[in-house]
Simulated scan of single mutants.
Amino acid sequence: MIRSLAFIAALALAAPAAAQDQSLADVRSELADLSAQLQSLRSELVASGAQGMQAAGGSSALERMDTMEASLMRLTSRTEELQNRIDRVVKDGTNRIGDLEFRLCEATPGCDIGSVGQTPTLGGESSGASVASAPAAAAPSASSNAPALAMNEQADFDRAKGVLAQGDFQGAADLFSAFAQSYPGGPLTGEAMYLRGEALEKTGDTGSAARAYLDAFSAAPEGTFAPDSLFKLGTSLANLGQTVEACATLREVGARFPNAAATSSAQGAMQSLACQ
């Protein structure tokens, strides 16, 4: 009995640390299991009578159980609060991206509003826990800790970059688009989507460039290229005459990525646009 009680106490104290490597659903499930075990121990202790109570440490055993139960309730309540907050952020972010897609289509000649489909949930099925900074002028290459490259992935990426360096911007945009479709979720895909936006921007197709930057940000809203993609989206919206939306987007750069180099560029762009 005493060993079981100590085991549950250790698990309850370790729960916050373990949560760092688990989803909130996993944490809530474990907290529910711990609560059920604690209730079972309480019933076992009460049923053991005075002798069992004395062996467990007397009336203080029940007091310790009450303390642990209260801690479990606080942890459970906290995980529910976090889940609700995350759900609100994801919903709000998804709605904002959907609105930007609609407005981009309105501002792009020849775009069919009916072709704007349902916006995928922000971040997809999962999103990273950390935010990485990236310079605004030249986005860095993929991290050495990134997943292994698929066969021909590096060669296809280098070929698209080579075409971009040669000044064939439309050709490069097409190659980067094909690359993103061929290697979805790959370690170089975020950079490819970002560079596609730059290539389209140099062709003068600002509307398509803005959509490319939006796609790059939506695919990885906390990835390495997210700050620059968001900044470029804001400046593209400004060039399309969507000043209000541009200011809102540029403001998000600093709010989401305060330490990124793109934040300084976004602040300068906001000053130029006289954003309120």
Rank of each mutant, 00 (worst) to 15 (best):
G52C: 07
G58C: 07
G58A: 07
G58Q: 02
S59E: 11
S59K: 09
E63K: 13
R64H: 11
M65C: 01
M65S: 01
D66A: 10
T67K: 05
M68E: 07
E69N: 14
E69W: 06
L72C: 08
M73K: 15
R74Y: 09
L75M: 09
L75A: 09
T76R: 12
T76G: 14
S77W: 04
R78V: 10
R78K: 14
L82H: 13
L82F: 10
D87C: 11
V90M: 13
I97T: 14
I97L: 12
I97N: 01
G98T: 00
L100N: 14
L100R: 15
L100P: 01
E101F: 09
E101L: 10
E101N: 15
F102I: 14
F102Y: 14
R103E: 15
R103Q: 14
C105R: 01
A107R: 02
A107L: 09
T108E: 15
T108N: 15
C111H: 04
D112Y: 02
S115L: 10
V116Q: 04
Q118K: 13
P120K: 08
P120E: 03
P120H: 07
P120Q: 06
P120D: 09
T121I: 07
T121C: 05
L122P: 12
G123N: 12
G124T: 06
G124I: 04
E125T: 10
S127C: 13
S130A: 07
S133D: 13
S133V: 04
A134M: 05
A136W: 06
A136C: 11
A137F: 03
A137W: 01
A139N: 05
P140H: 04
P140W: 03
S141G: 14
S144M: 04
S144V: 12
N145D: 04
N145E: 03
A146M: 02
L149N: 03
Q154T: 12
Q154W: 02
K161V: 09
K161A: 11
G162D: 07
G162T: 06
V163Q: 09
V163H: 00
L164Q: 13
Q166G: 15
D168S: 11
D168A: 09
Q170D: 10
A172K: 00
A173K: 00
A173N: 00
L175F: 02
L175S: 05
L175Y: 03
A178G: 05
F179M: 02
A180Q: 05
Q181E: 07
Q181P: 03
Y183V: 07
P187I: 01
L188P: 00
